[in-house]
Simulated assay, not measured.
Amino acid sequence: MIVSPGMSTVEILRTLVAFDTTSHRSNLELIHWIADYLAAHRARVHLVHSEDARKANLLASIGPDTAGGMVLSGHSDVVPVTDQHWSANPFTLTERDGRFHGRGAADMKGFIAACLSAVPSWQRRTLSRPIHLAFSYDEEIGCLGVPRLVSRLQAQVAAPALAIIGEPTQMRIGVRHRGFFGHRALFSGLPAHSSDPSLGASAIEPAAYLVTCLAGLRRAFARQGSAATLNIGRIDGGTAINIVPGCCEVLWEFRPQDDAAVALVHDAVRQALADLPTGVTVQAVQVAGVPALSTRNNGAAVSVARELGALWPEADLPFGTEAGFFQQVGIPTVVCGPGSIAQAHQPDEWICATQLQAADRFMQSAGAWAAASLPVPTA
């Protein structure tokens, strides 16, 4: 693959948008294009595949193989365009009135494009510490790829000083957001004719008890003014009005702001499932888990992001990101990227040219930070 040595952020964004990386599809064509681009610019590139090898994360490093570097991270997948009315092909970048329209333009291929566009200028510098690019798969359906990516980062890269997750914040520093945990509880009972319910075991009744407990927790959070939220998203059970139901499924999620809220919900659910009626069993599994981002030990990341030009004051984000995964392994982490979350997932999704320009300046500052002389250790 021949890659132009001087591709602009807009040119790269146009290429990235053209890859349909909707989460139900493979992202390998996009990842291979990025890998070729980075290899052509002498980056050290590694792919981290999913179990079925249909998708891959990408981890790349520019600069010396030392500790104290910066991680710039984003996700490669996008949400579907199904049932949305677009005024143009969503997978062709279209410019109108200073805005670039296309699926993923804001969320978050604009950030990835700015990273890639800056690589040649980073390589022209003599970097004192590395810049690591970490691009994941399947963020939009539960952050499924990033645990593998972070695990490889820990195994392969000397401890970074910070991570910046480039979700669209209009270049403000995001320091906090709630987590997201999705759960599925499948109750199995014994179907019987309803003329004598004692011959069966209802799966719906214990499921209803769980739902009642969850609803009580939700009301308690609301009364207390807690940032934690809880939602019962789907209940499906039974076959007919005159049959004791043999199965019932409950899908629910909660969004905690801290570990205390997580523990409270988990304890309540354990109690709700601890004393099931005779003949009823339950399979309770977590189907998605995204840790919260807190302000714990992230001062270094905030300081560097401000030095690079990120906007202040800091923001509490209303949406979840992959940042908590990096923070969990001890990397100071913030969220900061171009574009607005209000445009994400929308028809005619767009990012302003001025936001891409701000991201370009941010990346040039990142290169200057990485090239700056390190303090001389004192005895």
Rank of each mutant, 00 (worst) to 15 (best):
L93W: 04
L93Q: 10
E95Q: 14
D97Y: 06
D97K: 13
G98I: 06
F100E: 02
H101P: 00
H101G: 09
G102F: 05
R103S: 04
R103P: 01
G104S: 06
G104C: 08
G104F: 05
A105D: 08
A106P: 01
A106D: 01
M108V: 12
M108P: 13
K109Q: 12
G110C: 02
F111Y: 00
A113T: 08
A113C: 11
A114N: 01
A114D: 05
L116Q: 09
S117E: 13
A118W: 02
A118Y: 04
A118E: 03
V119M: 00
P120C: 02
P120Q: 00
P120F: 07
P120I: 13
W122L: 13
R124F: 09
R124A: 14
R124E: 14
L127C: 07
R129K: 14
R129Y: 03
P130Y: 10
P130K: 08
I131V: 15
H132V: 15
L133K: 04
L133I: 11
L133S: 07
L133Y: 05
A134H: 07
A134W: 05
A134T: 00
F135D: 01
F135M: 12
F135K: 03
S136N: 14
Y137I: 01
E139A: 05
E140F: 03
I141G: 08
I141Y: 06
C143W: 01
C143V: 06
G145L: 13
V146G: 06
P147I: 07
P147R: 00
R148Q: 13
L149T: 00
V150P: 05
V150C: 10
V150A: 09
V150F: 10
V150H: 03
V150W: 06
R152Q: 13
R152M: 07
R152L: 12
L153M: 14
Q154Y: 02
A155L: 12
Q156G: 08
V157F: 05
A158N: 09
A159M: 09
P160H: 10
A161R: 14
L162T: 01
L162P: 05
L162N: 02
A163K: 06
I164K: 04
I165M: 06
I165V: 15
I165Y: 05
E167W: 02
E167K: 12
T169N: 07
T169I: 11
M171T: 14
R172K: 11
I173C: 08
I173T: 09
I173F: 09
I173K: 04
G174K: 00
G174L: 04
V175W: 04
V175M: 09
R176A: 12
H177F: 00
H177E: 06
H177A: 10
R178S: 14
R178L: 04
G179S: 04
G179P: 02
F180P: 07
F181V: 14
F181N: 03
G182L: 11
H183E: 05
H183C: 10
R184K: 15
R184S: 13
A185S: 15
F187R: 05
F187T: 08
F187M: 11
